[in-house]
Design a protein around this nucleic acid. Structure first.
Lengths: 143, 143
DNA sequence: CTTGATCCTGTAGTCACTACAGGATGTACG
DNA sequence: CGTACATCCTGTAGTGACTACAGGATCAAG
């Protein structure tokens, strides 16, 4: 009776879940500790056993983290999508608030990219005696 | 002999430095503790007194942090720009490495913005029975 | 001389992990 | 059966870059 160890198995260990999801083992246990994930069933010896439901949950969390949601936001969304899966409006609220903050971060980064690119370009690797990077960073407080 | 307390003064208190630079008082002290800033002179009663040099340093740090440099990177740049202010090449190295990471972050954020915007748009505040945000986050692991 | 603002030190909390110690199992091979 | 070695367990502490707070000292004004 070999337990299938490749991906797609019904019940998997924490190590397999980790490989499958790209989430660190320690992080999975951390998520359990802070109640992002429910405590999974255990084997007789105390090892965690995960099924498809847990896999989906973790994938959701992972994905949301990648999209820059905080764990608190994700917790809220999970709660909404959980027993009821009812109020899309609430999810919309969280997601669009997040979208706004993403857009502001984005425009900051664009400005930053411009400044950095200009600066790095001007500083042609030691040709000039004074370094424009240092000068720009020095002076740019109210530019 | 009144000490001038408006901005532009020679010697200022930590509170004024904070207001002037937009850096939290606690953060200034934190910077001193971790040696990002040199310990400033003190008054007889032990209060920190900052001059123009310290102001410039802090402005540099603040600016660099805004641009997303880590404190370690800034420390390196400060060291380079410090006693010697010689090797522009080294600064260039740090800055262009940082530029690369900014560009990659930027493209991630653009993708993210697209996904979020689409998703939020499709979820027209509770009109649909199932929430597409939850579905997308649920399923999007390998899309 | 009292009030209130500002300052001081030192410690602990935040977020989202990550790392490690020290031990208990599980699996594979001879 | 023994022995390696991988994987798992718990619990604690460390990371980066702050932020908050306790408990006290000092300062400037009225």
């Amino acid at each position: 009776m070999r337990t299938i160890t490749s991906s797609g198995a019904e019940n998997i260990s924490i190590g397999e879940l980790s490989k499958h999801s790209g989430v660190n083992i320690e992080t999975i246990r951390y998520y359990e500790r802070i109640k992002m994930l429910p405590p999974p069933p255990r084997t007789a010896s105390g090892r965690r056993v995960y099924g498809p439901a847990e896999k989906r949950s973790l994938a959701f969390i992972r994905r949301s983290r990648d999209l820059g949601f905080t764990l608190e936001e994700i917790r809220a969304m999970l709660a909404l999508g959980g027993p009821e899966r009812a109020s899309c409006a609430d999810v919309h609220k969280i997601a669009s608030a997040h979208l706004a903050s993403v857009r502001s971060k984005l425009s900051d980064l664009v400005k930053l990219e411009t400044i950095l690119a200009e600066t790095v370009a001007r500083c042609s690797e030691g040709a000039t005696p004074d370094c424009p990077v240092l000068d720009i960073l020095d002076a740019g407080r109210d530019g």
